[in-house]
Amino acid sequence: MNKFENLEEYDDPILYDKENDAYREDVTILLKWAAKAAAGVIIDLACGTGRATIPLALEGFHLIGVDVHNGMLMEAKKKALNLHLNIKWVKQDCTNLDLGIKSKFIYSVGNSFQHFLTNDAQDGFLISVNRHLEREGIFIFGTRFPSEEELLQQNEEEYWRSYIDKETNNKVDVYTVSSYDPLNQVQHNMTIRKYIDSTGEIVDEVRTNIGLRYVYPKEMERILMINGFEITQIYKDWNESPLTEDSHQMIYVCKKTREL
C-alpha cells in the first residue's frame, strides 16, 4: 500500500464530519500553544475538513490547512467560507511540503501520524515539518499507543459504536475488523457501517479500509531526534496527563533543535 492508497476512509467528507466534527479534546492545548507562538502563521498538517483548523481561526489566529485529499479540503473551504474565515487551504503531500514559509507552530492531530506507513514516509513527513518550522518552533502531534488492547484484536467483526444520522434519522451501527501485521507494525482495519431504519431493517451497508502504523515510545524518541526534534512533553491525552503503560494515546510536544 502506498501513501495515496490509504485514503478510502476519507472519500466521504460529509460522513467524516458527522462522525468526527464534534470532537474538541485537542483544541484547548492547541489554542494554548497558538497563543505562545504570537504573531505568524500556524500550519495544520493533514487538516481534513478543518475540524481543528477552524476553531483556531475563530479565535483570531492565522492558519494554513494542508491535506492531500481534495474532497476533504473542499469541504473545509466551504465551512470556512460560511463562517467568513480567511484560512489558506493547500493540497499537498505532507511528506514533501513546499509552502514557501516558516512557522513557529505546526501541528497534526486526529492520529494522522499513523497514516505514514513506512519509515521513508515518516521521515519525509518529519523532514517537511522541520523545514517549515522556525528554530525553537513547536510541533505537536498525536498517535495511538501500541498497547495489547490496540494490537491484539481478534480478526472478526466487533461492535464499536452507534449514532443517529440526522439527515435520514437512521441508526448507524459501526463495526470494525482489525488485523495486525507485526513485521510492518501496521494494523489493517475495515470499518463497517450498517444503516438501520425505524423498523430495524438494515437498509444499507458501507465498508471502508485503512492501514495505521504503530510506533513504540523509544522508537519515536529516535525518529524525532534524527529528524531534528527534541521531545519537551509527552502526554497520554489532550488533558496533559503523564504517559503511563495503560495509555491509549501518545501526545508529543516537540521543539525543533536543528536544521536538516
Score class of each variant (00 low, 15 high):
residue 24 R to Q: 07
residue 208 T to R: 08
residue 17 D to R: 03
residue 94 C to A: 14
residue 237 D to F: 15
residue 59 E to D: 09
residue 184 N to K: 15
residue 246 D to N: 07
residue 145 F to L: 05
residue 204 D to V: 05
residue 153 Q to I: 13
residue 109 V to L: 11
residue 26 D to A: 03
residue 199 T to V: 06
residue 184 N to L: 14
residue 144 R to C: 00
residue 31 L to P: 11
residue 229 F to S: 01
residue 203 V to T: 14
residue 34 A to Q: 03
residue 96 N to C: 10
residue 33 W to C: 00
residue 58 L to Y: 01
residue 91 K to V: 07
residue 102 K to F: 08
residue 109 V to I: 15
residue 113 F to H: 03
residue 197 D to T: 09
residue 238 W to T: 14
residue 166 K to I: 05
residue 131 R to W: 01
residue 236 K to Q: 13
residue 95 T to F: 11
residue 150 E to N: 11
residue 109 V to W: 01
residue 206 V to A: 04
residue 178 S to G: 11
residue 208 T to L: 07
residue 6 N to T: 00
residue 216 Y to Q: 12
residue 190 M to P: 05
residue 142 G to E: 14
residue 14 I to G: 06
residue 257 T to F: 04
residue 202 I to W: 15
residue 15 L to E: 06
residue 47 C to Y: 02
residue 190 M to L: 07
residue 260 L to K: 08
residue 118 T to L: 04
residue 215 V to Y: 01
residue 238 W to F: 15
residue 191 T to I: 04
residue 27 V to S: 12
residue 170 N to S: 00
residue 202 I to K: 13
residue 58 L to W: 02
residue 237 D to R: 05
residue 150 E to A: 12
residue 215 V to Q: 02
residue 202 I to N: 11
residue 188 H to G: 01
residue 24 R to M: 03
residue 157 E to C: 09
residue 72 M to R: 00
residue 217 P to A: 12
residue 166 K to W: 09
residue 28 T to K: 13
residue 176 T to D: 12
residue 164 I to S: 09
residue 250 M to A: 05
residue 208 T to Q: 03
residue 126 L to I: 01
residue 26 D to K: 11
residue 182 P to R: 06
residue 10 Y to R: 02
residue 254 C to M: 01
residue 257 T to I: 13
residue 71 G to Y: 10
residue 210 I to E: 00
residue 145 F to H: 12
residue 62 H to A: 11
residue 72 M to A: 07
residue 164 I to T: 10
residue 106 I to L: 08
residue 173 D to R: 10
residue 24 R to S: 06
residue 42 I to V: 10
residue 181 D to R: 15
residue 90 V to A: 00
residue 63 L to I: 15
residue 18 K to R: 09
residue 106 I to D: 06
residue 48 G to F: 00
residue 220 M to G: 00
residue 130 N to Q: 10
residue 17 D to C: 02
residue 197 D to G: 11
residue 81 L to P: 04
residue 171 K to L: 11
residue 50 G to T: 01
residue 34 A to V: 01
residue 152 L to H: 11
residue 192 I to R: 07
residue 190 M to R: 11
residue 250 M to D: 05
residue 22 A to S: 15
residue 141 F to P: 00
residue 78 K to S: 04
residue 100 G to H: 07
residue 31 L to M: 12
